[in-house]
Design a protein around this nucleic acid. Structure first.
Length: 257
DNA sequence: ATGGTGGCGCGGCCA
């Protein structure tokens, strides 16, 4: 059995105590982190090694930054989308032997029609092309991370208020559907789920207390791997802790091959 | 309420 998790920690420095507490209780085998916000020489390797995790990381100062924690050593495959020039550290792919994992921090996009939105769509276009080729080499592929896209209205606390807005626009959802068309299915939706289950809540306006959330953190799996999925849940526990990340971790459990 | 909060790093950007 393999437990895979994704968590946007919104600064690994600010959240290290939350992360170590959560790892100790959840004991996932593979974890993709986003928004680590540290340069590689500052990554807390020793603290995570003490919990039994090998770290692969690709970070920068202040913004973005991704990492993969694994109980077994893994081999880096990519730290960027091949052929897509990008200063921002948003991609980390590793080969774990039994599966390959792509950890993503998809651009937020700011506002529909903005320059950042155009960058997000171009980034997603390049991502789809890359994942199509990667799937040929790695049939057991899991693509996880902060997608900054709510797949459909069930993933939005107020679908009418959010319709056409950033994180919910048709063009963003269409880009996500391209990944689904490659065979990369949203593992969360393989299972019956409680309504109004979200993974991100704005810090402002008491969003979490009122459950004004979106489900934008996803675990996508290739067909062979998806068929082995046993559960997929969102762990609200660390979002309730003092000074939390604005995102909750998503966890998928895969049975033996 | 066109705001609100939080991280980084020390003014303003990003989410």
């Amino acid at each position: 059995m393999t437990v895979v998790a994704t968590w946007n920690v919104n600064s690994i420095r600010a959240r290290l105590a939350h992360l170590t507490e959560w790892l100790a209780h959840s004991t996932p085998d593979l974890v993709g982190l986003q928004e680590t916000k540290v340069q590689d020489h500052e990554f807390p390797v020793a603290e995570l090694a003490a919990l039994g995790y090998h770290c692969v990381y690709s970070g920068q100062k202040s913004y973005n930054g991704v990492a993969v924690l694994a109980r077994q050593p893994s081999t880096p495959i990519a730290t960027a989308i091949p052929g897509f020039a990008d200063e921002q550290k948003r991609v980390l792919a590793v080969d774990c032997g039994e599966l390959a994992l792509v950890n993503l921090y998809v651009p937020n996009g700011y506002e529909v029609g903005s320059d950042k939105y155009a960058y997000k769509l171009a980034w997603l276009d390049a991502l789809a092309d890359w994942l199509a080729t990667l799937l040929q080499r790695h049939p057991n592929l899991v693509v996880i991370g902060d997608f900054n896209i709510a797949p459909d209205d069930r993933d939005v606390h107020d679908p009418e208020a959010w319709r056409g807005k950033i994180l919910c626009s048709d063009a963003e959802r269409e880009r996500l559907a391209r990944l689904t068309a490659l065979g990369l299915a949203d593992v969360f939706r393989r299972f019956e789920q409680p309504p109004a289950t979200f993974s991100w809540w704005d810090y402002r306006a008491a969003g979490f207390r009122r459950n004004l959330g979106l489900r934008i953190d996803l675990i996508l799996a290739s067909p062979g791997l998806g068929a082995r999925a046993e559960t997929c849940t969102i762990d609200l526990t660390p979002r309730r802790w003092d000074k939390p990340s604005d995102h909750a971790p998503v966890i998928a459990r895969f049975g033996a091959a």
